[in-house]
Write a protein that binds this DNA or RNA. Sequence first.
DNA 1: CATCCGACAGATA
DNA 2: TATCTGTCGGATG
Length: 909
Amino acid sequence: MAISQARIIESMEQACSNPNPDEFIFSFLDAYGFPKSTITRLRKGDDSRNVASGDDIGLKKKLYFRSVPEGTDLNAEADSLKASEVVSRNDIRFVIVTDFKSLVAVDLKAEERLETTMDDLDKQYAFFLPLAGYEKAVMYSEHPADVKASEKMGRLFDLIRERNDLSKPEDIHALNVFLTRLLFCFYAEDTGIFAQGQMTSAIQSTTQEDGSDVDQFFSELFTVLNLEDDAPERKAMAAHFQEFPYVNGGLFEADEPIPEFGRKARRLLIDCGNMDWSEINPDIFGSMFQAVIDEEQRGDLGQHYTSVSNIMKVIQPLFLDKLYTELEKSRKNERKLKELLLRLQNLRIFDPACGSGNFLIIAYKELRKLEMEIIDALNTVSDQTEMYYSGIKLSQFHGIEIDDFAHEVAVLSLWLAEHQMNMAFKEKFGYAEASLPLKDSGHIVCGNALSLNWDNVCSPSDGKGNPFEVYICGNPPFLGHGTRSKEQISDMQTVLSHVKTYKLLDFVACWFWKGSLYVEKYNAELSLVGTSSICQGQQVDLLWTPILKKGIRLHFAHKSFSWSNNAKDKAAVHVVVVGLSAKAKEVNLYEKYKSDTIKKEVENISPYLLDGGNTVVSIRESQISGSPKMIFGNMPNEGGNLILTGEERAQLIGENPESAAWMKKLVGAKEFLQGGERWCLWLTGATKNDIDRFPSIRSRVDRVREKRLASKDAGTRKLAERPHEFRDLNNPDSFMIIPSVSSERRKYVPIGLFGSDVISTNLNLIIPGAGLYEFGILTSEMHNDWMRTVAGRLESRYRYSATLVYNTFPWPEINDQQRKTIEELAEEVLLVREDYPDKSLSKLYDPKEMPEPLREAHKALDRAVEKLYRDKPFRDATERLEHLFARYEKLIAEEKEKAPAKKTAKGSN
DNA sequence: CATCCGACAGATA
DNA sequence: TATCTGTCGGATG
């Protein structure tokens, strides 16, 4: 079992604070998971493992460590070591030189250098991760030209918007059409489809400087672009229009209104035209729509464009990486290179939610680039002067898109990409097939991916029984519950008919399921972007259990990362990329660390996207270990009328001091974690007369009734019958509070104990009657590790829940003495907290600010709780989880044995 | 009646 | 504008 990054960070923090020169290197090696036996031998001076001489430490293929007196030039020392015979003979990866004030390290493989002070070394722990088996993955970064062009077009759009009324959806659509056509023309005049600068110079020389006739110009231009070369209407046009070629019926066919331009907009238009558009990725089309579209349309289906770097996260591990590996293996072998060329022609790339075609375009271009490298290698290997042409056809690229306009753009963009790659081919080899006239285009179907038969869109074989090598990729739409239309829900029902509670899944799950059916049937491979919630919380069991049953496994995954693209307003969401295959041999897990993405080869990727087994926890109504029941706090659902600020409370009491008897302190997650005061009217037991005595309270209660009656939710409307009360009436004498949402930066979700003077809102979960023992277990690292794995998340925040986290947690079996120990240590945690009365729990549990005594108290408790599970301490979270999951499985099995008829809460069937 | 979630939402730096 | 961190109550079982 590999060492976890969390443990490395922790150990490095220790090793780097006040390093002991004699011990430092040993703590360092320990931190990165070197075997204890190796470290002990090195410490004893046993030189059978040490390849270095003197006081240096050298481990074959790993590192060479040297400590030097203060004042030594560390870089020079590292350089001389780097060039030394002992380092190259032993294939050393890292050279490390330090004077214990600063440290210089060189990664000889990645050719990177780290210079840092000793104090900051722990923050640089990622540099040495290859020592623990984590390799940095090389990722694609955004093209600056795209960003620049997108900004310019955004400004042009703003100017057009000032001048034109865009209140109606059809106006916006017309503008979208116009911008697409404009972009095509910019493209065309820089890439040889038009004459160089043909349109821009025509605008410059034939339109008024005040921009008043620019719309007329475009009207005529678009007409001529839609006329075949020998069409008689052409003759009637002005000479400078006649020079434009016939392009493509699709794009310029419809007669859409053209926006008016002003002086400024015309100048910006010419400015845009003078840019070099040949450098731009065709995927900019998608980017443009996203960046310039109307606010209200943002977030609509298909408008979420995927950045190139995120597309690469999907297609590199899916097929590009292995094809490149194949090329490297075959470089010297003419026959194998030719086979690889043929293999490329046998590929099928299929995006069942293709939008304006971003994934297909990037995939196409990347495959053409690879093909050029193969041809290059062939030219080097073979003596014959054979002319190799590109064999990759646009017809190998399949897509489904529900929006007709996006689908048109996708077809067009693919053709542009083909032209672009033909130019690149010609540049490299001096010859290429002509792009014109238009040949076959991508096979993009306009329709509903959830009702279409995918076999018909992307046929898995050539019809003569020869299978294609099919890869499914894309970024289908995410829609959580409450955000879906009736039609979409009915689509979900059709596709996810095997899941009873299919409505709990995200819309995107449809593509994963339908995709896995295709993968299973044709032994294809798939890689899709999904919202991170499909790998968290209640969805995990529903989606993945049936997929894993098919023998399909997650052959790579990018762990949850925050969504980002070049759009002005990017979607706020965390996403995952998951690859599915029944045949892949290598399993890789990718994780973002600051600006790097780290790749790690693992045995298996769990549906939680962890390096571990496939055990999945499903929601359950009852506690698996018989611990006390956890319930919700109290949902107010009253529009703020029963809730009082400190001032409002004072005012009410000022009006009538007796009203104070009906008030209680209100604690939501925010008050609990960050402090602050809120109060509520807790009128349970109050009669109509009681309430009428306080006019202010009476009017508040009346407003609650109105508010509830206005709700679209039937349950809420029914609540209007008792408008003086919260929806729930949980006010136990003593109880524990656990915030339902809290920051993921914390090692422990802060929890606390309260009495009946406090009302908890539904933003907390509560356990009535819970005491120190329950507090001790639930605040332990064991339980928090469990929570981190099985809990749902709000983006990346922890989302504690009773059915997923609490009810499923396997509690230890204990005797009275052990119980007492835990209670004492739990009390100690609470007592230490009291030493910081002016610090909120949020501050106390902030990893940067957590006071040392509190940390210590928790550590003592953690160790004691661990001991309840087994004597031998756990090495890290991975080991703790392994143990807990094994215990969970055992408990579930026992439960089934005892009561086979009584089913546990399982969503999938 | 109970409760998980939000291609988020609101406050703060 | 980026960063941080949890509201509110609907939709759903």
